[in-house]
Amino acid sequence: MARSAPTEWTAPAPPGTPVNVAGPSVPLAPARSRRSRARRGVLFLLMVAVAAVMLYPFYFMITTSFHTEAQYQTGHGSSISSWTTLGQTVPIGQQLLNSTLICAASIAIILVVSISAGFAFSKLQFRGSQGVFLALVGAMMVPLQSILIPEYVNVSRLGLTNNYTGAILVYAALGTPFATFLMTTYFRGLPDELIEAAVVDGLSYPATLWRVALPLALPAIATVTVLQFVQIWDDLLVGLLFLQNPAERPITVGLAVLASGRTTSVPILMAGSLVSALPAMVVYLGFQRYLVRGLTLGVGK
């Protein structure tokens, strides 16, 4: 998003503001700058207020985690005991590892199938490919809950709920439609001539995907990876049902189970929540532009 940095009072107020009833904001005359500055001040404070609302959970989690349960009830004092006992209450290391494993495997599958399908739907159309594409993308609208029972029955009958496999496959299947949609949209943006040039240069189609299209798809791959990572890392339902062995629970599920039990101390839960939220937050802040791109790629911009 290339925007010029906001300049001082001479900057024309970007138009299209419902609250600005002062009339057209075509370049402001200096006489009106005071009013404009006041308006900007009010806006700034408003944004700070919204920021406070949005950041409240982090504030709550951090402060609470530095209390004991008793301190949390009274609201006085501070302690790091919930951090020191966190590891004993929750197998946090194992759960982080589980989350990582499951995320990595699911994302790997999603990437492989969505890249190849996206390339096929955009550059290697076959008879009926448009229909297959629409059906695949339509699967995006099916909530897991609506097929939860048969899904659970199938996966457990195959004996896949006893290890990571079942959850990984379900995550992969649920993530594939949107990922395929993103990859297809992305590859459509590549000129057909690029593929033709590669073919004239002597590549087969699979080799064109591997040597020409794939290196160009890195931004889209990043988008899919980040979106799916956050999605899977933060998911509850699949991990809850398709991982029967508690030792294989990912961190989000582990926390949810503890929380629903209502016996665990709130400060420890909050410490655990912070730990669980950290990886996703780091990924979010680090790859924000890929997320934004992914969110809006469907709009065709």
Partner: peptide, 28 residues
């Protein structure tokens, strides 16, 4: 070659979604 490659490349995604989304809808 183009059509065949396209077909082959789209099969894994299709298989995954059919097995884990489409068939369960029918079962449901």
């Amino acid at each position: 070659q183009r059509r065949l490659t396209g077909l082959v490349l789209s099969i894994p995604a299709l298989a995954l979604v059919v097995a884990f989304v489409v068939i369960p809808i029918v079962q449901a």
